[in-house]
Amino acid sequence: MDRAVACTTPHLRNAAGAEVITGAERMDEELRRRNLRTALWLGATAVAVFVAFVARYGMSGQ
């Protein structure tokens, strides 16, 4: 786990101060990558829609 995240999120440490493994951390690497891929596609779609509208209608309005 990212140490910086562990330090800023104290609930990811147990009473003894050791890092704990949450459900999210237990996700296997393949699922993590798949989630990231899905999110990047969806995020890219949102950005593309924004750019397309501003470019298309922005230009027609000028």
Binding site: L42, T45, V49, F50, F53, V54, Y57, G58, G61
Partner: peptide, 14 residues
Amino acid sequence: VIAVMPVLAGAVTM
């Protein structure tokens, strides 16, 4: 939401 929120964002940015 993913399809139309950026459209509103574009409109208000303009």
